[in-house]
């Protein structure tokens, strides 16, 4: 399968196989009004299988969201057909209003105006905890989002 190169845009590479479609949805790529190519289960020397998303224009990306969902993603910015910039993501120190605390005893469960904020408690194990009650964000959040 051949998918052409892009002149100006973004290539999200090294997406964990199977997460591409979720990232497509979260970034709202269906609404950006340009060509977007979604490649699923591409062969990868490093990962075995991976997903890739090619976006036909440069858009603002929320690196925190991407880094939370899939910190192994590589973001390649393409300008005039050439690689202009490559960003290796890392887990963000905090995530705000992306996921909700599930602890019914947490203050965020009853006061609607409070932001749902999680902090990175363990970088190695990618553990995030609620800023208010320290409840761990379950790992399945990353597959749910």
């Amino acid at each position: 399968m051949i998918i052409g190169q892009i002149k100006d845009g973004i290539v999200l590479d090294h997406i964990t196989a199977g997460k591409g479609i979720k990232i497509y949805d979260i970034l709202g790529l269906q609404d950006i009004g340009c060509t977007v190519a979604m490649i699923q289960l591409a062969d990868s020397k490093k990962m075995g299988k991976k997903d890739i998303i090619k976006i036909g224009k440069v858009i603002d990306l929320d690196f925190d969201i991407l880094g939370f969902i899939d910190p192994g993603i590589t973001v390649n910015i393409i300008e005039d057909g050439k690689l202009a910039k490559r960003e290796h993501l890392s887990p963000p120190e905090k995530i705000v209003n992306l996921i909700r605390c599930k602890n019914p005893r947490c203050i965020t469960s009853c006061e609607q105006e409070i932001k749902h904020e999680f902090y990175l408690a363990d970088r190695e194990k990618l553990v995030y905890r609620c800023k208010y009650c320290d409840t761990e964000a379950p790992n399945q959040f990353r597959t749910e989002v």
């Binding site: 947490c106 009853c110 208010y132």
Partner: peptide, 26 residues
Amino acid sequence: HPKEGAPMVAAAAAGVPVINAGDGGH
């Protein structure tokens, strides 16, 4: 306060020092 994290919310708004005298099981 029975809700965990309530004193932290109060601390951000009060404008004076806040001491947590117990927030739920936290």
